[in-house]
Amino acid sequence: MEKDLQNKEAVKKLKSAAEDIRFCMYTTYKNEKIESRPMTTIQIDEDGNAWFFTSKKTEIGSETNPEEAVTLIYSDPKNNTYLSVSGSAVAVEDQAKKDELWNPMTKAWFPEGKDDPNVVLLKVTTDEAAYWDNTSSQMIVFFSMVKAVLTGTTPDGGDYGKLNLA
Rank of each mutant, 00 (worst) to 15 (best):
E2Y: 13
K3W: 06
Q6C: 06
Q6G: 03
E9G: 01
V11I: 11
K12Y: 10
K12C: 05
L14P: 00
A18N: 07
D20I: 04
I21F: 04
C24Y: 00
T27C: 07
T27Q: 05
T28C: 12
T28H: 03
Y29M: 09
E32R: 15
K33C: 10
E35H: 15
E35I: 14
T40R: 07
I42L: 14
I42Q: 15
A50Q: 08
A50F: 12
F53I: 02
T54S: 12
S55G: 11
S55N: 07
K57R: 15
T58H: 13
I60Q: 07
G61S: 10
P66T: 08
P66L: 08
V70R: 03
T71K: 09
L72M: 11
L72C: 02
L72K: 03
I73C: 10
I73R: 11
D76T: 05
P77L: 07
N79Q: 13
N80E: 08
Y82Q: 08
L83G: 01
L83M: 06
V85D: 01
V85R: 02
V85G: 00
V85S: 04
S86G: 14
G87T: 03
G87Q: 01
S88H: 15
A91D: 02
A91P: 02
Q95L: 12
K98V: 07
D99S: 13
E100H: 14
L101F: 12
L101V: 04
W102F: 05
W102K: 04
T106Q: 10
K107E: 14
G113R: 05
G113C: 09
D115H: 12
D115V: 09
D116G: 03
P117A: 02
P117W: 09
P117D: 09
P117L: 06
N118Y: 12
V119Y: 04
V120S: 00
V120Q: 02
L121T: 05
L121H: 02
L122Q: 00
L122E: 00
K123G: 03
V124E: 01
T125E: 05
D127P: 00
D127W: 05
E128I: 04
A129M: 08
A130R: 14
W132Q: 06
N134R: 10
N134S: 11
T135V: 05
S136H: 12
S137R: 09
Q138T: 10
I140P: 00
V141T: 11
S144L: 09
K147G: 04
A148Y: 05
A148H: 08
V149W: 13
L150Q: 08
T153H: 13
T153L: 08
T153R: 13
T154V: 13
P155R: 04
P155I: 00
D156N: 15
D156E: 12
G157C: 05
G157E: 07
G158C: 10
D159Q: 14
G161I: 04
K162P: 00
L163H: 01
L163I: 03
N164A: 06
N164T: 11
A166C: 07
